[in-house]
Structures are given as C-alpha cells and as structure tokens.
C-alpha cells in the first residue's frame, strides 16, 4: 500500500510511538485535573523524568528501572507542587509554571556529564510470528512495552474514573470539594495522590523521550512536549479515551507533515508545519460545537484551592 509515497501502515505504527510521551503525561494530568487541581508544570515534570530515567537506566543497565526512575523523578518534583498548593494553598497556575522553570534548570544541572552516553535499549516486545502478519503485525505487534502500557493506562484510567469508588471520590473532590469534605473525604489527601500520579506519569512520558524515542540526553530534550500534553487534556474534554485520540491525531499529523515533505509533496512547508496545531484546533471546534455543552465542562473546582478550617 502506498499513497503518494507514504505507506499508511508505517505511518500508523510511527504515530503510535510518537504519541506515547504526550499521551502518558496527558493521562496523568487528566487525573490531576479531575481532582480539581490545575498543574501547568507538566513540562518541568517531564524533563525531570527524562533525566532521572536516563540516569537510572544508565546506572542500572535496565531500561525498565529507567522508567521507574523517571516516574519517581516526576513524582518527586510534583511533590513540591503538592506541598505548595495543598499544604500552603499557593496559587496553582503560578506554582505550576514555576515548577517548569525549576525543572528545566535542575534537569540541566543534573544532566551535566550525561551527554553523549547511549542508554540501554528498550527493545520491541517479542511477539514472534505475530509480528510478520501483514499490516496488523507492523501496527500492533512491533512496539516496545511502553506503547502497550500507554494504551493499557488509558483503559485503566478510564475504568478507575468511571467504575470504581476511588474514581467517584476523585470526581467528587474535583467537582465540589466542599460537598466532598462534608461527606468525609479527605480532599487534600486525594488531591495529593492525584498530583503524585500525574507527576509519575509525566515523568514516565519524559523518560520515554530520553530512553526510547531519542535515546540520549541533551538539555531541554522535551522541547515543549509538556505544553502539548496540557493542550491534549483540554482537547479530550477530560475523557481518557479522547486523550488517546488527541495524542494520536496530533502525533499522526506531526508525522504526516514530515512524511509529506520527505516524499516531495507540493504543499508549502510553512503550512505543513502549522498543520498539527491548526488541525487540532479544527477538530476540537467540530467536536465541541456538535455536542451538548454540559459534557465538555472542566471539573467545576478546577484550579481552586481548598481549605477546611476546624
């Protein structure tokens, strides 16, 4: 199969890999926002995950431990955010942005001496003969485990939020923290847990960049992926499966525009490089104008701090 020099099977397989970092980070941020907290520090947590994961993988020789290290790095940084916003009731927007600034600086300091090192490789999951099935083999059975993990995580987040008591509590806290408090839920503790989860997921997303997508460390390696993840959460209207759609759409068009260039398309390059952003906007406009407005709402308590005085 070939369309103007572009093989759609290869394109789909590539976009599934390209979308992983923003997908993981966006899933984490979705849970954070569902609990009523707006953490704009995704970029900072991602890059901390990228360096911590890289260091862990290089020193242990295990890419798996690298991802654990990345998750830990992101979570530790998010703990700073949690202490400030939940403990000291600091403004969430400003704290999140400060977190990004701090994370970018700290990661660069930590990363000195890690330039030009190759991390252990994250190999494809051995599916044996399945991989050789035409079309499906390349799309479904040729990836490393994190790609499958990102899809599984989407399903898990969806299931937890929709069908479990924990999900109910998270949503309650995010919609109306006063009522949740009156019902006896520990608002701050729930939010703390969500923030740490968000940090860990962002950290893993960052680690995927430094360990799998671009297996290396350089300063600023995430190059704005955290901001795209934030946009994808909004794009999803706070629905987990739409995170997958949004990340695949964005990742897909980013890939497609480069592939179009590589195969000599006549579309001017300037428009091609704007395309991922413009098409994401366009799709969101179509999605948000067609549906009932209520289903698009952000969690009601988003960005508001909670204080229960006794």
């Amino acid at each position: 199969m070939d369309f103007g020099g572009i093989n759609p099977v290869v394109l789909i397989a590539s976009l599934m890999v390209a979308a992983v970092p923003i997908m993981l980070a966006a899933l984490g941020e979705l849970v954070v926002e569902k609990s009523g907290v707006l953490n704009l520090g995704v970029e900072g947590m991602m890059i901390m995950g990228a360096i911590c994961g890289f260091m862990a993988a290089v020193h242990t020789g295990s890419p798996f431990l690298g991802f654990i290290g990345g998750a830990a790095g992101g979570a530790v940084l998010s703990l700073v955010f949690a202490v400030l916003t939940q403990g000291l009731l600091a403004n969430q927007v400003a704290t999140g942005l400060a977190l990004t600034l701090f994370g970018l600086g700290l990661s660069s300091l930590m990363g000195q001496g890690y330039n030009g090192i190759k991390p252990p490789l994250t190999g494809a999951v051995p599916f044996g003969p399945l991989r050789d099935i035409p079309v499906l083999g390349r799309i479904l059975f040729s990836h490393d485990w994190v790609v499958y993990f990102s899809i599984a995580a989407t399903a898990l987040v969806w299931w937890v939020l929709k069908a479990t008591r924990l999900g109910l509590v998270i949503r309650a806290v995010g919609e109306n923290h006063d009522a949740a408090h009156a019902l006896g839920y520990k608002v701050q503790r729930v939010r703390l847990g969500c923030i740490l989860f968000g940090g860990a997921m962002a950290g893993m997303g960052g680690a995927y960049i430094s360990l799998a997508r671009v297996p290396q460390w350089t300063d600023g390696i995430t190059a704005g992926a955290g901001w795209i993840a934030l946009a994808i959460v909004v794009f999803s209207s706070w629905k987990p499966w739409r995170i997958l759609i949004g990340a695949y759409l964005f990742g897909g068009i980013s890939q497609l525009q480069l592939s179009l260039q590589a195969s000599g398309s006549k579309i001017p390059v300037g428009y091609l490089s704007m395309a991922p952003y413009l098409i994401t906007i366009l799709v969101l406009v179509i999605m948000s104008s067609g549906r009932a407005k209520a289903s698009l709402k952000a969690p009601a308590a988003l960005g508001q701090n909670f204080h229960a005085s006794r």
Binding site: P21, V214, I221, A223, S259, Q261, A262, G270, S273
Partner: peptide
C-alpha cells in the same frame, strides 16, 4: 535528494521524527 524542513534548530523528538520520515520514504 529529499529535504525535510524541521523549522527548528533544536527539538530532538522532531529531529528524530524527520529522520524516520526520510527512512520510511526509502532514504
């Protein structure tokens, strides 16, 4: 020759994607 314009000096993920797009196109 195939030329891919990344419109950036530094974005490792995008640079890797550009390489991948070229490889996929048979370069």
């Amino acid at each position: 020759i195939s030329v891919v314009w990344a419109y950036t000096w530094f974005d490792p993920a995008k640079e890797a994607d550009a390489a991948k797009a070229l490889i996929d196109a048979g370069v």
